[in-house]
């Protein structure tokens, strides 16, 4: 269904917008501790940049840049990292998802929980980004 639309304006606008959107997505994920933002929003923004690539480059070229299998792998691995972050404190003697007991040497207390939140936010971002691209691919493929 998705094909390349040959137009110089669309090509140039996309080539400018896609890196900007991706940079903004990274900023939103990193800035989630100090302001509006976080894993979900950043992941969706990154997925939007990939979807823009899909729309302007067409199927062939954009699948080379970001293969659909990578999206599924990203979604599943984000979920896996989240689960392991939940299970690691249990192995160290805490409760499920209790970041205060994460086995990371050198930090403790509030800093350790800060670090746990960072890991979880990034895993959510990966998972959401992969799932959104997967949803777009599957639904766009189905509409024929």
């Amino acid at each position: 269904m998705i094909e390349r639309y040959e137009n110089v304006i669309i090509d140039i606008v996309c080539s400018v917008m896609v890196p900007l959107i991706q940079l903004f997505a990274l900023y939103v994920v990193v800035h989630g501790h100090y302001g509006p933002g976080g894993g979900f929003q950043g992941g969706v923004l990154f997925a939007v940049s990939i979807i823009l690539l899909r729309l302007c480059l067409g199927k062939e070229a954009s699948h080379k840049k970001f293969p659909p299998k990578l999206a599924a792998a990203l979604a599943a691995s984000g979920m896996l990292v989240y689960m392991l972050t939940g299970l690691a404190p249990m192995a160290a003697g805490g409760a499920f998802l209790d970041y205060g007991h994460l086995p990371i040497p050198g930090v403790s207390g509030a800093e350790l929980r800060f670090l746990g939140i960072t890991i979880v936010e990034w895993s959510i971002a990966f998972s959401v980004c992969g799932t959104m691209v997967l949803l777009f691919d599957v639904l766009a493929e189905g509409m024929r």
Binding site: G32, H33, Y34, G35, P36, G37, G38, G39, Y82, M83, G86, F96, L97, Y99, A110, E111, R113, F114, G116, I117, V120, E121, I124
Partner: peptide
């Protein structure tokens, strides 16, 4: 004091209610 995160929404989402987010 407990999580060192100024954004309360993030700390509730990922720490206090992490199970919900999972």
């Amino acid at each position: 004091e407990e999580t060192g995160t100024p954004n309360i929404v993030t700390s509730v989402l990922a720490d206090y209610r992490g199970y919900d987010t999972l």
